[in-house]
Amino acid sequence: MRILVLPPVNNSHKATLEEAAPGAEFVYSSPAEVNETQVEDVDVIFGNVRPPLLGAASRLRLLQLNSAGYDKYVACGTVPAGCALCCATGAYGQAVSEHLFASALCLMKKLPSYRDLQREHTWGDLGEVRSPAGANVLVLGAGDIGTHVARLFSGVGAHVCGVRRARVAAEPPFERMATMDELPGLLACADVVCSVLPSTPATRGLASGEFFGAMKPGAYFCNAGRGDLVDQAALVAALESGHLAGAALDVCSPEPLPEGDALWDAPNLLLTPHISGFYHLPVTLDNIVAIAAENLAHLAAGEPLRNHVEF
């Protein structure tokens, strides 16, 4: 078995992968350097290879992504016939949830505004702040990352409701679990709305002017899922009118954000350049490698694969 590895793995990671597939030949490259010659004779690709290159991967049995999202690979014909597609769900919960929680807390304590005053050399008091303790927090997308988000908010005394496509029973750290059909009523009661939803036809444009209008006055909106969830002009309007107290975006559309986009100057908006996940927290890459190693062992043994994407 020939395995092409694209993430920036260290020696410890290499040992983990090679122990999971004894006797396999490993080729280490990178997303920027990989080419058709490298992919055409491999059985496994570990990493997010550029989709057009997959046309040359005639013997590919497994494409193990390093991302939780897989929307770039689901178009018909992108993944070769007979090849399993697996994602890295379960690797990013700690990193993304901590970023979202920190962003919401910064907004509630007006820390970005105090940073602005510091840069102006102004000693000023911005008045009342808010607390997550006792707040109603709505988490859109209650899978691995959403559960980590809920755990952080619940840990400081917030009341957390999760939202999923299908109805399931609520379990801690969620006090309640709802479906997308219930969203309008839930928005009216939430002090903080955090989204980690993927990009799907049902989620694109979901956070519209109607969505923000249904939110509780003075609430906060945070998104670390996908940028195409949000009607960005509607979000800017909700911030400029004061209807929302603040928003935090780690994702936007397009990325990078154009220089003249209105988001740059929107009031009470904390904007980060899609960095909550990736490998910024080292444990994330450790988690991704562990998932890949598990699936290499499953593939060799003919066992069901973890995070197998069903088309």
Rank of each mutant, 00 (worst) to 15 (best):
L60Y: 06
L62Q: 13
L63M: 05
L63N: 06
L63T: 09
Q64V: 08
L65C: 09
L65M: 08
N66H: 12
A68I: 01
G69Q: 06
G69D: 01
Y70V: 04
Y70G: 08
Y70H: 03
Y70I: 01
D71I: 01
D71M: 10
K72G: 05
K72R: 13
Y73Q: 10
Y73F: 11
V74D: 00
A75I: 03
G77E: 03
T78I: 07
T78V: 13
V79R: 13
V79S: 11
P80D: 08
P80N: 12
A81R: 14
A81L: 10
C83K: 06
A84V: 10
A84T: 00
A84R: 10
L85P: 05
C86R: 00
C87A: 00
T89R: 15
T89F: 08
G90T: 03
A91Q: 03
Y92Q: 05
Y92K: 03
G93M: 07
Q94Y: 13
A95D: 05
V96C: 00
V96Y: 03
V96H: 06
V96F: 02
V96A: 09
V96D: 02
S97P: 08
H99D: 14
L100I: 13
L100M: 14
F101S: 01
F101N: 01
A102F: 11
S103Q: 01
L105I: 09
C106R: 12
L107C: 04
M108R: 04
M108A: 07
M108L: 03
S113R: 08
Y114M: 06
R115K: 10
R115F: 09
R115H: 15
D116C: 11
D116W: 13
L117A: 15
L117K: 12
L117V: 14
Q118N: 11
R119H: 14
R119A: 14
R119S: 09
H121Y: 14
T122A: 14
T122K: 13
T122Y: 11
W123E: 04
W123C: 00
W123L: 08
G124C: 13
D125C: 11
L126P: 00
L126C: 07
L126A: 06
L126G: 10
G127N: 12
E128H: 15
E128R: 11
V129Y: 05
R130T: 08
R130E: 13
S131D: 15
S131A: 06
P132I: 07
P132Y: 09
P132E: 00
A133F: 15
G134I: 00
G134D: 08
A135K: 14
A135V: 00
A135F: 06
A135Q: 14
N136I: 03
N136W: 05
L138N: 12
V139W: 00
L140Q: 04
L140M: 12
G141D: 07
G141A: 10
A142Q: 02
D144E: 11
D144W: 04
I145N: 03
G146C: 05
T147A: 09
V149F: 10
V149T: 10
A150L: 07
L152G: 01
L152N: 03
F153W: 10
F153K: 07
G157Y: 03
H159L: 02
